[in-house]
């Protein structure tokens, strides 16, 4: 049962993070746009994501929006949307920070060689920004993996919810929470190790 819960947790986190990365990239580009309307949309988006709890965001999407529009979506879909938007908001700030952390001299050097603005962004700035971002992005991934446990309240039998279910039948609180905790821990530990290898491989420092 717990492994079923774990696989749902991983599925939820995996799908959400893929969407979150895409949302994050576009939102960060909007945030750095010359167009004040796009910048405003990004600012409002990030402010709402930051300013409200994930739990409220999940309820709002699953019950609030579906109720208003009179549509039904699955709990998995609602959970994915909430987690994607939530992580996307934070990631957009991480990406923006990474891009702005690249030495302005890099852009100048590229432009002085005749590279266009977009060639400069994609060939020179983004590859360096990614390297700068890796630790913070991995950090956000870890947070989102654990945040799947919060979103379980809308009715998703992921790892934490499965733990609760087992305890309801067995009353073995101590053992179950140790095992559940260990499962999260191992997943995140593996991710961190992997990230550290990648980080080292692409590092530009001495």
């Amino acid at each position: 049962m717990l492994t079923q819960g774990l696989s749902l947790t991983l599925e939820l986190a995996g799908v959400s993070l893929v969407f979150a990365m895409v949302i994050g990239i576009f939102a960060s580009l909007m945030g750095m746009s010359k167009n004040p309307i796009l910048r405003g949309i990004n600012k409002a988006f990030v402010a709402i994501i930051r300013g409200t709890p994930l739990l409220v965001q999940g309820f709002f999407i699953y019950f609030g929006i579906t109720g208003l529009l009179g549509i039904r979506i699955t709990a998995f879909m609602a959970g994915t949307i909430a987690l994607s938007l939530n992580a996307g908001g934070y990631l957009s700030e991480i990406f923006r920070g990474g891009i702005q952390a690249v030495d302005p001299g890099q852009r100048e050097a590229a432009r002085s060689l005749g590279l266009s603005a977009s060639q400069t962004t994609w060939r020179i700035i983004i590859p360096q920004a990614i390297r700068i971002c890796i630790p913070s992005v991995v950090n956000q991934w870890c947070i989102t993996i654990k945040d799947t446990s919060i979103i379980s309240v809308i009715g998703l039998a992921e790892l934490t919810k499965m733990g609760q279910n087992i305890i309801a039948r067995t009353y073995r609180s101590f053992e179950v929470w140790i095992i559940v905790g260990a499962m999260y821990f191992i997943v995140i530990w593996l991710l961190t190790v992997l990230a550290r290898v990648v980080e080292k491989k692409v590092s530009l420092d001495d």
Binding site: D103, G105, Q106, E108, A109, A110, I124, P127, Q128, R131, V202, L204
Partner: peptide, 9 residues
């Protein structure tokens, strides 16, 4: 440039 600005990647 003064600070070279080679592309480090």
């Amino acid at each position: 440039f003064q600070h070279f600005n080679l592309f480090p990647h």
